[in-house]
Design a protein around this nucleic acid. Structure first.
Lengths: 201, 201
DNA sequence: GCAATATATTGAACAGTGTTCAGAATGTAA
DNA sequence: TTACATTCTGAACACTGTTCAATATATTGC
């Protein structure tokens, strides 16, 4: 039995989340069970319910961390050319999804059993991600208003997300020589070019 | 006890798949259990293992049917203008995903526990889907070779898929007034326009 | 230092899951 | 009618998330 007050609530929660990430990384989502996480940190399964509402709650918290990690990775983009900037975003996104596949999958595929929506703080962080994209897009299209830029960002990023997902589950790509990075570059460049010539047609 | 030879193997399998789809449609993927399917058709859970290797196999077969259904829905596209054609494809895709969300989710999110790849016949049907797109694209860009068209189709469809997915899990769209159909139209039109002016720049 | 109290943690239990397989139920042939 | 072959069940196993009475430990009051 773990001795009482060996760890504070916060410590316990942090330990559990780290253990969960370790399991996720090495054994995949299917292996992510309460008992496994608990064993990993030397507690019983029941103890997890002192710091998490349920399995869903644990997943949401994992997703919060994953999203934060992704945002941090995207921080490193810094170049003058806005198109180059968008391309780098896309490339980092793809790399992140490739390196952290189980965490990334959980982030985008986890849904609660009962139709509980994602917590608000998670939505806020997603909003943050989109704002990052709006910046270079606004630079490309200074004549467009915020609503138009916002929609472009979501459309383009939906596209990047889709190519990334289909690339990861490679069953959807039969010609093996197709490089997803090249596809993303193409998507970003072509989309922005198409939007540029819209007015002048 | 179900009487022996009440149904042939094929009948049993068909009944099970239909029952599974009913459960999927009304109660979601989480509710799709062997015992529930079996009860629904008046057999015991064990009987399912006479016609399915395991739960995964049942899911793959469901996905085969879903993909077939999707392909059939896409048959109805028929118009002269290739861009209009692509837009219709995208719209049908979105509608299908909206109407048959649980089946569509299973199709794109189901992965076997052990890294078993999707069966070959499923990959073939996906290839069929891509070929449908290559036709109007080839019409738009007669100067490009097959490999380039093939890659364009996959890039564009990755985009459509991504926008569809992010739209269905609406948590990713904070400004509610954005219409996914409009976003898909924009994506298709802008991408094709961008690709059109590539040579002439 | 010791008893009383409060709380952190466990471990057994419950209902569910996928899966297997001995044996019962049923049809067919001799 | 008996023997055989096949179909199907139902109990069992190991797992899951989750709850909660009981227990082990720490803190407080004396």
């Amino acid at each position: 039995m773990a001795r009482r007050s060996d760890h504070s609530r916060e410590e316990l929660q942090e330990m559990a989340l780290e253990a969960a990430e370790r399991i996720l990384d090495t054994q995949g989502e299917a292996a992510l069970s309460a008992r496994k996480v608990a064993t990993e940190i030397g507690y019983s399964a029941g103890a997890l319910y002192l710091v998490f509402q349920n399995r869903d709650d644990l997943c949401w918290q994992l997703n919060g961390r994953t999203l934060q990690k992704l945002l941090t990775a995207l921080e490193h983009v810094n170049c003058e050319d806005p198109i180059e900037c968008l391309k780098q975003f896309a490339e980092i996104y793809l790399t992140f999804a490739t390196v952290w596949t189980p965490r990334w999958s959980l982030l985008f595929e986890h849904r609660s059993a009962d139709d509980v929506d994602a917590p608000q703080w998670l939505s806020n962080r997603i909003d943050e991600l989109f704002r990052k994209l709006e910046q270079p897009l606004a630079q490309c299209f200074p004549q467009l208003d915020q609503a138009a830029i916002s929609q472009m960002a979501r459309t383009l990023w939906g596209g990047v997300h889709g190519v990334t997902i289909l690339s990861l589950r490679d069953k959807l790509f039969l010609n093996q020589q197709a490089d997803p990075r090249q596809m993303l570059d193409d998507l970003v460049e072509t989309y922005v070019r198409g939007a540029s010539v819209k007015g002048s047609m």
